[in-house]
Design a protein around this nucleic acid. Structure first.
Lengths: 208, 208
DNA sequence: TGTAGAATTGAACAATGGTTCAATTATTAA
DNA sequence: TTAATAATTGAACCATTGTTCAATTCTACA
């Protein structure tokens, strides 16, 4: 009896794991297509081909195209939020913010879902859009808090943290548009260069 | 005889001016829709409605949707390139660059076509894509030259001008995604805050 | 007033895109 | 080996989209 339950339970777990693995594959494939084409021009047939299955099969795993993007973005934002938490304990705010910004760029350039994280979801139904926008806002708020902490600790001199934070995030997110994997710099290098520049701009004036 | 030529010439001019005016109206309307929806989700029927004419009528003035975006981007890039030229003569490189960056943001937030300037044209036919990409590159090169000049004049300390320039442009272009016309800051204010921040980051280290 | 050219329309066309679904195949457990 | 469940397929469906085009309307000129 206990064995029977275990047997069924193991089978369900295996089946779920297989389906979940398949879902991850699809998300990765979709993220590549979204990155290449943007959301609207990314076709389900192209995603299916990228994931090596048939178009109709996608619907066994996801309800539709918007849900696929939703999960891509959800994953990427989770990764970014985790970076924020890990950076909670650092020696200086500069250091912590640099870590966060570096990780952000790496997420975008290294992780497939990363580049899809900030695609526009305005036209999505509310139940998909709301949690994504909320997560984005949470992340942005976290970054802004760091900027403000640096202002309070005297490391930074910032008068408009909201706007500056968005400029920072813009610089980071835009890397998806121009980064060339075959270029002379790898994602990590690009990430560090940009993060250092952005953090430097937060420091006090150097009028000479 | 001379009068006849004048009369015809005047009529042609008037007709051309009318058609050109109409074209500008369409471009402005299209830019608004492109900005709202992105290129792929912007529909010709929606553009026609925004321009207050019928969908078929658009094709009297433009060959198609891609050509409409092409002209939007062409205009915006002309504006930006003009700013670059005007900034050729300034007291300091800092000042000149600040002017360029400020104008860039204003172009994006104030001019309708501005927000469409950097939409992706990868899928366009070559004869449309090439001149746009060339203009973008020209602009980017111009900005980078300013950054490098500041490095040479000692105003800036920059080791990777290509990457930094792209980060700068990313921060500027991204304003189209988050700027809220009903917000507390107008385009000019946002432009100045961001430009000042980005230029500040180019200055030498302030390690303390 | 008549004519020619410019401009406009709205229905239709062909292609495309997201999605459905019945049939089939694959997998798993007993 | 059989049966049940999971997964897959590919054709079809329906809606949408960019575009065409014949007919009509508008404008300007003689």
């Amino acid at each position: 009896m206990v064995q029977l339950l275990n047997s069924r339970s193991n089978a369900e777990n295996r089946i779920q794991r297989r389906a979940e693995g398949r879902r991850q594959e699809i998300l990765r494939a979709a993220a590549r297509v979204f990155r290449r084409r943007g959301f609207d021009a990314a076709g389900m047939r192209e995603i299916a081909e990228e994931a090596d299955l048939s178009p109709g099969n996608l619907y066994h795993y996801f309800k539709g195209k918007q849900e696929i993007l939703y999960y891509c973005q959800d994953r990427a934002l989770d990764t970014m939020l985790a970076t924020l938490e890990q950076a909670a304990t650092g020696e200086t705010v500069s250091l912590r913010l640099t870590q966060v910004l570096t990780a952000h760029v790496r997420c975008i350039l290294d992780d497939m879902e990363g580049a899809a994280a900030h695609l526009v979801v305005d036209a999505f139904p509310l139940e998909l859009r709301r949690p994504i926008v909320a997560k984005r806002d949470r992340y942005e708020t976290g970054v802004r808090k760091l900027v403000e902490e640096g202002e309070q600790s005297g490391e930074f001199s910032v008068q408009e943290p909201v706007i500056i934070t968005r400029a920072i995030l813009g610089a980071l997110n835009w890397t998806a548009q121009w980064f060339d994997p075959d270029g002379r710099k790898n994602p990590g290098e690009v990430a560090e260069i940009i993060a250092a520049y952005l953090v430097r701009g937060l420091r006090g004036e150097t009028r000479t």
